[in-house]
Amino acid sequence: MVSRSTKTTLLLIFGIGLLLNPVYLYPNNLDGTGTVVTYEVEPVENETVAESLVYISEQTLTCGTERACALEREVAEQGSLEYNHTVQERLPGWDPFSLSYARYTLVAIDGRFYAPEVREDGERTILTHRELSTMEALDQIAVPNDETSPEVRRAVETGSVTVVDHRIPEFERRDPIAHDGEVYAVTGRSYSSGPPEKVLVWRALFVLVGVGCVAVAWDLRGRE
């Protein structure tokens, strides 16, 4: 049978443990000062939303007066463009989410979407466009879920994800995510400094309980 002295010691240790702050409730943010980012994700359900996502994507070249658009407009007007040189393609193994990735995969011209294509014919290079519908354009820029980070996969599967002291590149760029035949996109982002309110409430509660345990243990030890 556990002695009274042992019980008092265990109660004291438990109380001190609570007073040291239950940081295990919020991993990766032990001091409560980190930036907490919550991303909310939902399936794209209509063409209006899809169109807005296509236009804001960093993978889309929305043609105005940009230098690259002069070439793309010429291809769109002529149907194809060819010349006696080869073009440099994206190197295998490049990370499409790194800062060095500067290639666009979709072109928007006068309300229409095109996938730029390159075909080699001997020593000639032929540039063409493949016109896409809005939903096809969305699929064109959607990132397969199995090529993303665990945080992205968790967000798609659960509807949201919270991270501390870092950002999710795919969501910051508003890349749509393809998963099980559907396309998902970020519908909301929230940023805050420090832990959520519910964590602070639990911490305050545990501190109060810890003070009570230490006080009781101290009183019992004084009576021994």
Rank of each mutant, 00 (worst) to 15 (best):
L205H: 00
F97H: 06
A50Q: 05
S160M: 14
T9R: 12
V156R: 02
S3M: 08
S80G: 05
E151R: 06
V164I: 08
R73Q: 10
R73A: 11
Y24A: 13
L81E: 05
G34M: 10
P144K: 06
L61H: 03
E66K: 02
G79D: 10
T187M: 04
W202V: 05
E131H: 02
E82N: 13
V152Q: 05
V107L: 01
A70V: 06
K198V: 13
N145H: 12
M1G: 01
L138N: 03
A68I: 02
T134Q: 03
F97V: 03
F171P: 06
I109H: 03
C63T: 00
L53E: 04
T48Y: 13
A178K: 01
P43E: 14
E82A: 15
R174K: 14
R154D: 11
P176I: 01
A115Y: 07
R124C: 07
L12E: 01
V44C: 07
L138Q: 08
P27C: 13
S100L: 11
R154G: 07
G210R: 04
V211G: 10
E120W: 02
G210T: 05
V214W: 08
Y101F: 15
G93S: 05
A217Q: 09
T6I: 12
I56T: 02
V211D: 05
P22W: 06
N84D: 13
G222S: 09
E47T: 11
V44I: 07
S190H: 05
C63V: 01
V36G: 10
D165V: 03
T48W: 08
E117T: 10
G194I: 05
Y83H: 10
R67T: 14
G32L: 12
H179I: 03
L71Q: 11
V75P: 00
Y83E: 06
F97C: 09
C63H: 05
A70Q: 11
N84P: 15
R130I: 02
R90A: 12
L19T: 01
S100I: 04
R189T: 07
S160P: 00
V87I: 09
A215H: 04
G34K: 10
A204V: 03
R103H: 13
V2C: 07
Y191N: 09
Y104M: 12
R174Q: 13
R189W: 01
L12H: 06
E82T: 05
V163T: 08
I13P: 04
V209Y: 09
T187G: 02
Q140L: 14
R90V: 14
N46H: 10
A217C: 09
A68F: 12
R90C: 14
S100Q: 10
I126E: 12
E40H: 13
P116M: 08
T65C: 03
A217S: 07
R223T: 09
L138M: 10
T128W: 03
G32N: 13
W202R: 04
D110M: 09
I56K: 07
S193E: 13
A102C: 06
T9I: 13
